[in-house]
């Protein structure tokens, strides 16, 4: 199942994207479905196969995001 990471702010999303690009971590920015959050207009889309790896790395590196939301 695909999932998105949401962010508190555009700056947080940009910092996340920059870190992922530098470290070769999977995912990409997409528009945030309003039904999920109105916090930031951006979300980080991740496929099911990448999810655990990305979350592990995010935690390890202290990358900030708001929350993980499953896409149904």
């Amino acid at each position: 199942m695909q999932a998105v990471l949401t962010f508190h702010s555009t700056t947080e999303a940009m910092a996340f994207e920059r870190a992922c690009k530098e470290l070769g971590l999977p995912g990409r920015l997409i528009p945030m479905p309003v039904a999920i959050s109105a916090q930031c207009g951006l979300a980080w889309l991740i496929g099911p196969e990448d999810r655990n790896r990305l979350l592990e790395q995010a935690q390890k590196l202290g990358l900030k995001y708001e929350r993980l939301v499953e896409l149904k």
């Binding site: 508190h8 702010s9 555009t10 700056t11 947080e12 109105a38 916090q39 930031c40 207009g41």
Partner: peptide, 14 residues
């Protein structure tokens, strides 16, 4: 660009 439906401005920097 964030928190469109909040009546207050976001507190997170920047």
């Amino acid at each position: 660009g964030i928190k469109t439906f909040s009546k207050t401005h976001p507190e997170t920097m920047p």
